[in-house]
Nucleic acid binder design. Structure first.
Lengths: 260, 260
DNA sequence: AAACCGCATTCATTTATACGAATGATTTCT
DNA sequence: AGAAATCATTCGTATAAATGAATGCGGTTT
């Protein structure tokens, strides 16, 4: 069936941009073809065009495609449309500077978390997430931080197709999820303890605009570094960031993340 | 001749994204078709796909396409690759807050200025530029701020195909351009007095990383508001922003805007 | 030095997309 | 209230792009 919302040429371009956006050290054409599932000959003219428009550039030594100034220009445009993104990004950088772990921001999209921004740390963690990608909200700290605003009825709507699981610790029943969300409401933050990935822990707080959660930020770290001391420090940073961001958001017109 | 660097499907997607990126109040499908030169039926499936991926969203009341969270995610990726962009953007916002006029940032690309970021002001100016677009460097304040680093020989290389002109005040000879660049070096800022557009004036300063200019920021305003007092105020803001940005850039690894 | 690997690039054919005209739905003007 | 304008959407056909196999190129191994 020719579904007009699955226009292949457009999908190809977006996939390339997204894949490249979260590959700081770049990707070769072959690697990109393998990653996206499109043939090299299909991608070739696309890459040439993106190069000509400077959305990407070729690493001078190795033949790898990197994010370029054209793409950065889009980022500039995005910030013009969403000035709060830049401010939140600064707070995320402060968090990363404070704890040395990667910080991410996400918004809720149906039953998924859409990863919207990321600030890398020196000590890298292998993450399943990447900017532009989606992961089930019930398996992520970001997701649970945002799902905590909903009652049982709303959750049933959202997860009408069931709760996907990644590891054996993932909440795959509504009852389990609801118990964890109650915990989130009580503590003021959400946690993902190896629910998405066996070796990764995440802590997240929701960011509210005039009481309404609009996004969430999280810190991810490998389980072997997630001792009590580190967690305390990270939570302190997240709470401080939340306070500053919310003060800023309350002064802005309403952010709209309407579903349709 | 089928030039692989002018792949139409890719161009269409980029044009749509760029056009929409610099339209804060959104565009209808028809307006977008008129703007980009593609037919509505061509754009239709592209828009549907961008909608499905949340790159754009439909304004609930009016049927206009707006920049969406998916696009914002790309912006997040761009900022992850270019953290300095967010910092510069903050300085640009400070400039706009100080003078109430639009502030833009650009990088040099051959003989053109590529507009990389923009912070809008309440009092809008009709600008020829928009984020992602290119304009001849010799006709813009941003361009001249950055061209001032080059000697005669390098300028001859860059403008081997001649100097394009927009108004009768545009510098269309190398001699004229060079005299103006000398002025830029002397004063420490560049000016475009109705050289791009009959009713617009721009002031720009180059941003240097360890002495090497990497980008420039400018303020644009209509000629009827460009009195001596306003100019003084704007230059003060630009100089202050430059100082803070350069202090920040000097602490970062080298920015790469390689041509190829 | 010859054979090999990983890479970008080209080519002919199949296949999917783009276009302009026509339709239907909604809003704006008189 | 009626007419005109504006908008999204669909359709058949002309056209442009996608595909996988084949080619060419630089560096590395046998």
């Amino acid at each position: 069936m020719p579904d007009s919302s699955r226009h292949q040429p457009t999908i190809r371009v977006l996939d390339v941009l997204e894949r490249l956006a979260s590959a700081p050290q770049g990707l070769s054409l072959t690697a990109l073809a393998a990653d996206t599932g499109f043939s090299k000959s299909t991608l070739f003219p696309i890459m040439k065009t993106l190069l000509a428009r400077r959305y990407i550039r070729l690493a001078p030594d190795t033949l790898r495609y990197l994010w370029g100034v054209g793409g950065i220009a889009l980022a500039g445009a995005g910030m013009a449309a969403a000035p709060w993104l830049s401010a939140i990004n600064d707070e995320m950088r402060a968090v990363v500077q404070g704890c040395g772990e990667v910080c991410q921001m996400g918004v809720l999209e149906g039953r998924d978390i859409l990863y919207v921004a990321k600030v890398e740390a020196k000590r890298q963690v292998r993450l399943l997430s990447q900017v532009g990608k989606r992961l089930p909200a019930n398996c992520t700290a970001l997701g649970k931080a945002l799902l905590a605003q909903f009652d049982r009825a709303r959750l049933e709507e959202i997860f009408a197709d069931g709760l996907p699981g990644f590891t054996e610790r993932s909440s795959v029943t509504l009852d389990d999820l609801e118990a964890r969300l109650e915990e989130v409401r009580r503590l003021g933050y959400a946690e993902d303890d190896r629910e998405l990935h066996e070796e990764t822990v995440c802590l997240a707080v929701a960011l509210r605009q005039r009481g309404r959660p609009v996004a969430a930020i999280s810190v991810s770290l490998p389980v072997f570094r997630a001792n009590g001391e580190a967690r305390e420090a990270i939570l302190g940073l997240l709470f401080a960031a939340r306070e500053r961001v919310e003060a800023m958001l309350d002064g802005l017109p309403e952010l709209n993340f309407a579903e349709d």
